[in-house]
Amino acid sequence: MNSSPEMLLELDRVKTYFPVERGLLFPSITGWVKAVDDVSFSVRKGEVFGLVGESGCGKSTLSRTILQLVRPTSGAVRFRGCDLVTLSRKELRSRRADMQMIFQDPYASLNPRMTVYDTLAEASQIRGATAANSVSSDIRKLLDQVGLAQRHIRKYPHEFSGGQRQRIAIARAIATRPELVIADEPVSALDVSVQAQILNLIINLCSERNLTMIFISHDLSVVRHLADRIAVMYLGRIVELGETETVFHDPLHPYTQCLIQAAPNPNPEMQEKRRYQAIQGDPPSPMNSPSGCAFHPRCPIAVDECSVHRPELQPLNPSRLVACPRTAEASAD
């Protein structure tokens, strides 16, 4: 993969495996969970990159691997051209301010013993603001930006509702003035009306601060609304990648098709037009993933060959990659 200047983040054949150990006294490794298996993609500066997939497909492990919260088994994660995998913990520390994360559960990700002020002050001090008055003016600006009233500044996380807590978590993430923000299911725990407020906040911040964002969600309509490009993951691998609208209009991989069809649509009229057969079976465990294409046991168009060869992610055109030789052939005809 060529390193081009506008790419902020590049992943090159990243693998994150977790050992499965048996035995209490003398544990031996009996297998590997391939949480992230040979994933490569790059994220352009200033874009929102959506990552979708069902639970257990490795999207959260992938995001943690990018931030080096989990070290990959192999592969390279280049952030502004510098491979984070080779950096020591100490060297990483200085770079972490550039890469921040927003988690799903804002209560679990905020320190319950720290007030809003303490939480945000800690983050903004990392960027060198040390004088007390500059810190507090920073914090006031942050609260304004995320739509929290100044009077909340001395409160603790438990005094806030879920939506407000997520605003604090977002304020903390942008306090270090990061270039890359990874949002891991930031609105999944919120009610519909609050979800819209937080999504708007994210849209505004991205455009105001020219943030690059990796947005992880299982909710397709949310990802479709925000993301410029999306990658669909299944069992640790990317099965399809492309411009969001193209993928949604014309999904090529059978899994992407199933996923889009299975998403409940809040429009009863569309429902009646589309009586589909739900795909059978559950996502398999990443501990013993099926041979060949991991999706073949559930795939409606699988042939014998699919259980033998693992399809690679193939470029159809410069902006579209699919890991299914059968659909790639069909669309080339």
């Binding site: 519909v192 009306s193 819209a196 999504l199 708007n200 849209i203 479709r224 609304h225 925000l226 809040p266």
Partner: peptide
């Protein structure tokens, strides 16, 4: 209002109508 706040009801990237 609840229905209008769903992302599927908006043009891409547009600000969502909130309650």
């Amino acid at each position: 209002a609840l229905q209008r706040s769903l992302p599927g009801r908006h043009r891409k990237g547009e600000l969502l109508k909130t309650i």
